[in-house]
Write a protein that binds this DNA or RNA. Structure first.
Lengths: 182, 182
DNA sequence: AAAATTCGGGACAAAATTATCCTTTTATAC
DNA sequence: GTATAAAAGGATAATTTTGTCCCGAATTTT
């Protein structure tokens, strides 16, 4: 007698194309979490961060190193150490700052078709069409700051981790299922 | 006696993050070129396409296969063969159709932070901020069609290839320079 | 001082994207 | 028919992105 079980697992792979790289997505999520905890006077560890935002631990460590070196986040070693952002800086740090540090500003400045030379004088076919999109994205990234982004989180209005899985795989064999879910 | 030479070369590597994948960029450029030539009653070959849009030949072949299988482009084998798009279909095929076939629609539908579950009811912190950008991008991609995109090209108002190089590398040694540029 | 905890950073591994090579198939022209 | 020109498609390689492992450095607690 065999049953149909299903096992669910998160995947960390970047979908064919998203707006930001995985590095940047994790970085933004981490920064918002740190911002929220900093507002509450808490310093938080890498372990806690990767648990809360559902990101791979060691990869997140590299990203936080980058943000720390960029001066966007403060780090402290040793027990009781961790990451934090001074409250007074929260409203000054924008989404743009995070993206710039991790992905660069190609996304708002580059040509939509990847041409090196694409400008008003020498436009690609979608140059005009792309203007508005790029301008919106750029304005949004400069407007959104860590204070605003983290208050929604603290109030429970927004979320940083998906409760729902990305990939669902069906497994008939109970033993196989248990070997994966144990 | 040594001089300072510089050698210039195009790079086909995707920058850290752009709006579309390289595959999609080449696909869009190829489709617009084919559209323009089709308007002039010409069928064009892979070789001509990759020369005109400055894309790697074999990679472009794969992309055109995908577009052909998706029914967006017609292909014909043999001498005088090549790629074309029936004129009457040009205004019906949108940027969205090309992107959808090559990259999927994740870019306008997916969460900006990569969360699997991100919606009005369970939003990520940047969900509201991203709405406008995504909507603009989606609307633009549905609005822009191959007829419009290719007429600018035919009239010489827009370009599909960069005259200007992406990377510049300085090389002092004349022998090294010659070995590269020969 | 020793132990424990946490970040820093180098080396390495896996996966996805980007790109190349080469053979087969199909159609045209001679 | 034969040669030729072009797309189709399989296999493979290079590069980049994503992710892991492990050890060292710094800081706090005991």
């Amino acid at each position: 007698m065999s049953y149909l079980y299903f096992v669910v697992y998160l995947n960390h792979k970047r979908s064919p194309i998203e707006m930001f790289s995985k590095k940047c997505e994790y970085g933004i999520r981490a920064a918002i979490l740190i911002a929220g905890e900093s507002l509450k006077g808490q310093r938080i560890s890498l372990k806690y961060i990767s648990e809360q935002i559902g990101s791979p631990n060691a990869f997140t460590a590299k990203i936080l190193q980058t943000l720390t070196r960029a001066g966007l986040v403060d780090s402290q070693k040793g027990p009781t150490g961790g990451f934090e952002i001074p409250i007074e800086k929260l409203s000054q740090i924008t989404l743009h700052d995070i993206v710039e540090a991790l992905d660069g500003s190609q996304i708002y400045n580059g040509c939509g078709l990847g041409l090196a030379e694409c400008s008003e004088d020498h436009p690609c076919p979608i140059h005009e069409h792309f203007k508005l999109v790029r301008a919106d994205l750029k304005a949004m990234a400069h407007r959104a700051n860590l204070l605003d982004l983290s208050t929604g989180l603290i109030k429970g209005f927004t979320y940083l981790k998906t409760a729902c899985p990305k990939k669902i795989k069906f497994i008939k064999d109970k033993k196989v299922l248990n070997s994966i879910t144990e």
